[in-house]
Design a protein around this nucleic acid. Structure first.
Length: 553
RNA sequence: UGGGGUGUCGCCAAGUGGCAAGGCAGCGGGUUUUGAUCCCGCCAUUCGCAGGUUCGAAUCCUGCCACCCCAGCCA
């Protein structure tokens, strides 16, 4: 594959072929969420597939709320979904659409099916209907109401629409085949009675269409050329096609299915995500540990990285679980290129440089290879904070940080040599004393004794205390969805909050959602909601790749 | 045990009859004022299994096996 060509997948091949053969002239796709929850990484995949295909083939992609079940839906979700799709970087064609705005047309088409003798009103209770449906291995039985006359069905359905019957007392069903090996074709339900207020249509409708009846027709109304959904709907395709074939619809969309995205160490079931929120395992739907779009955003995962990840993963029809390391890799890759560097000491230890008295301003590049990110001024003085983990009184040869009697480079500044340290009564080191080696700003020591490594630091005089939240994977199991109880596999170390970290003054001023690479530590984002210049709050997006910590040293 | 799908490297995934892409992970080595990045190299004689067709098969045929989905008036 050449680097700029989109990776081949069956959907791209299909569409290209349809275009080549003139089966379609315009590519129109749609992302059709039900507004009954927050979007998560799996939805991101569907979004990139649908919008991506439209983009690639010069077509359009609609955003359509599949709002046929008012009892589970709300305006809150309609708003959050739009925000998430926009944040991911996509613009839908035209206005936001709603299945509910097609309710009248759908109703008229239901009457049409009745008139064709292809639909009937059934009085079976839900329980009875289940019995009549048969089983996976046994055919179903015809409903006793299956042979009502067209006139009777029409009158009954009109009364259903008028609100004459109680919830659940009747349904409208398609008359297909109760013996079909495909259970979806055993006289599926088109309409049920639900006297529920709808977030868009209010109390205008006492009956609501089912997904099976509504979806294909919604696509047809909108002129969708390729209706892309997930694998579990494959069995519904014959039904989808049946409606399109039997109704005077304005276009003939076709359905194609792909495998939904699953990632390791992640749960996407709405029920389980809700349990995490309700039981306090996380702080909310947008907690940085959540796989929701809002959570990933608050974690600092760039939209472009999520998009790139979805592309790298590919689109196929085989069930799979993608290693979450792949997502993390996409995030690191993007941030390495785009995030400005800064210094932050997570676990401060005071360093006194005994031969320095005046402070000075040093200019540091914001990115090691991208000059367009500019530079910043950082104060350097006699008292600095360094990380407690970057100093040892003595250490083996593998340890490349500060050791008494040894040299280390202060990132972007001078080489120093440690002389001594003070300890408190508990043996804990309080202060490290070191000497600056003259002439080492941008130069190696003149005596030829090079420092073993480089450590980061922040001026005691101008550094700002910050809250830093260190996140780790939410689960201890690679497949938490398989666990009997998700709460039992929640990682107790998934959040560690530090209240005494110290960051460069300039970083504190950053706008919320700005991501930095705190050098030698990782990528951190200024919290979208909690960060303030006078009370900085940073979330760990992802740590730097670490190939040495497991080793001695 | 009815129907619909899927099986290519540890994890994804191209490939659609001509001598197994790529990414992630992993492993070596080099560069480096981030133990990061970057760079170089290694990593499937083999495509669920067994037969068959063919000069030639991951790609075609047959049979098996494994896994996923379907019996909501959810989507």
């Amino acid at each position: 594959m050449s680097s700029n060509e989109p990776r081949s997948n069956f959907l791209r091949t299909q569409i290209q072929s349809d275009l080549d053969q003139g089966v379609v002239t315009d590519v129109v796709t749609r992302f059709p969420p039900e507004p009954n929850g927050y979007l998560h990484i799996g939805h991101a995949k569907s979004i990139t597939v649908n919008f991506g295909l439209a983009e690639q083939f010069g077509g359009r992609c609609h955003l359509r709320f599949d709002d046929t079940n008012p009892e589970k839906e709300s305006q809150e979700f309609i708003d959050s979904i739009q925000e998430d799709v926009r944040w991911l970087g996509y613009t839908w064609s035209g206005e936001v659409r709603y299945a509910s705005s097609y309710f009248e047309q759908l109703y008229q088409w239901a009457l049409y099916l009745i008139d064709q003798g292809l639909a009937y009103v059934c009085d079976l209770s839900a329980e009875q209907a289940r019995e009549y449906r048969g089983s996976l291995t046994e055919p179903g039985k015809d409903s006793p109401y299956r042979n009502r006359t067209i006139e009777e069905n029409r009158a009954l359905f009109e009364q259903m629409r008028a609100g004459a019957f109680a919830d659940g007392s009747k349904v409208l069903r398609a008359k297909i085949d109760m013996a079909s090996p495909n259970i979806n074709l055993r006289d599926p339900i088109l309409y049920r009675i639900r006297k529920a207020e709808h977030h868009q249509t209010g109390n205008a409708w006492p009956i609501y269409p089912t997904y099976d009846y509504a979806h294909g027709q919604e696509d047809a109304i909108e002129g969708i050329s390729h209706s892309i959904c997930t694998l579990e709907f494959e069995d519904h395709r014959p039904l989808y096609d049946w409606f399109i074939a039997n109704l005077p619809v304005p276009s003939k969309p076709r359905q194609f299915e792909f495998a939904r995205l699953n990632t390791s160490y992640t749960v996407t079931s709405k029920r389980k995500l809700k349990a995490l929120v309700d039981e306090g395992a996380v702080a909310g739907w947008d907690d940085p540990r959540m796989p929701t779009i809002a959570g990933l955003r608050r974690r600092g995962y760039p939209a472009a990285a999520i998009r790139h990840f979805c592309e790298e993963v590919g689109t196929s029809r085989s069930d799979s679980v993608v290693d979450v390391a792949m997502l993390e890799s996409a995030v690191r890759n993007h941030l390495n290129q785009h995030a400005a560097r800064a210094m932050c000491v997570l676990d401060p230890l005071r360093l006194v440089i005994t031969n320095v008295d005046a402070s000075e301003q040093l200019t540091l590049a914001n990115h090691p290879s991208d000059d367009s990110l500019g530079s910043r001024s950082v104060e350097f003085g006699a008292e600095l904070w360094i990380d407690r983990d970057d100093f040892r009184e003595e250490a083996n040869k593998k340890y490349k940080r500060l050791v008494i009697g040894k040299r280390v480079r202060l990132r972007g500044a001078y080489v120093i040599e440690a002389d001594a340290c003070d300890k408190g009564p508990d043996g804990r080191i309080d202060v490290v004393y070191a000497r600056l080696i003259e002439g080492t700003l941008g130069e190696d020591p003149a005596d030829g004794v090079k420092p073993k490594g480089v450590i980061h630091w922040v001026s005691c005089a101008t550094g700002k205390t910050a809250t830093v939240r260190l996140y780790d994977r939410l689960f201890t199991e690679a497949n938490p969805g398989k666990a009997e109880d998700v709460m039992a596999v929640v990682n107790p170390m998934s959040l560690r909050q530090l209240d005494t970290a110290v960051i460069e003054a300039a970083a504190a001023e950053a706008a919320p959602e700005t991501v930095f690479q705190f050098e030698r530590e990782g990528y951190f984002v200024a919290d979208r909601f909690d960060h303030r210049p006078d009370a900085p709050v940073f979330n760990l997006t992802i740590g730097l790749r670490d190939t040495w910590s497991a080793q001695d040293g």
